[in-house]
């Protein structure tokens, strides 16, 4: 039904895309709250220094690659290359899952080194890393679920929907969680 109504004001941003931007602002505030609490806490007593899991470097690479495939997917969608689009969003979702697994392996690595993340023996430095990373993983998981929904839509044969809005909204979000991880990674390594 959307297509039957002419777009009177094309310069205006779609309300859903706009809402996504506001939501991203909201998520930024949440992580800003977390990382500033981290800084406050760091400047107080008993802060543990430890090495980040090496795998976080690789997971950073993976999520960067997934951003690229997401970009190509939305380009394919706009060019109506539906089979290419389906392949690309599948790869993106796969890379997202791989990222989640790698983060989990990162926690395993800390565990193996006997650095407690939670529990009575834990130090806030590690707990912060754990809580913030898990929180980011949940946001990536949300993105993966959104991609799976897009995927299901793309394979639905009864209704053909060529609206680019959902893809663009999900794409924006995907690049956002990517950028968020880059920020967190830089923060862990050089600021925090």
């Amino acid at each position: 039904m959307t297509t039957t109504i002419p777009n009177k004001e094309p310069q205006k941003i779609h309300p859903h895309k706009f809402a996504m931007w506001v939501a991203m602002g909201s998520i930024v505030m949440m992580f800003a709250g977390m990382t500033s609490a981290y800084i406050v806490k760091k400047n107080q007593s008993s802060w543990l220094q430890f090495d980040l899991p090496l795998i976080f470097w690789y997971s950073t690479g993976v999520i960067l690659a997934s951003s690229l495939t997401m970009y190509l997917a939305s380009k394919a969608m706009k060019a109506r290359e539906m089979s290419r689009y389906r392949t690309l969003i599948t790869i993106t979702a796969g890379l997202g899952l791989a990222f989640l697994v790698m983060q989990y392996l990162g926690f395993k690595d800390l565990e193996a080194r006997d650095i407690a993340m939670i529990g009575p023996k834990s130090n806030s430095a590690v707990s912060f890393l754990f809580v913030i990373t898990v929180l980011h993983m949940l946001h990536v998981l949300g993105g993966v679920i959104a991609l799976v929904t897009l995927f299901a839509r793309a394979f639905r044969s009864s209704v053909k929907n060529y609206s680019a809005v959902p893809v663009e909204v999900v794409g924006t979000y995907w690049h956002f969680v990517d950028a968020l991880w880059i920020y967190l990674f830089l923060f862990y390594n050089w600021i925090g």
Partner: peptide, 25 residues
């Protein structure tokens, strides 16, 4: 609301970890 409630949620998340998972935030 959109800019301040998420920060409260951050505080609550850390509180949940202190309550239930033995952390010391």
């Amino acid at each position: 609301g959109v800019l301040s409630f998420p920060v409260l949620l951050s505080g609550f998340i850390l509180l949940i970890f202190d309550r239930n998972f033995g952390t010391s935030f």
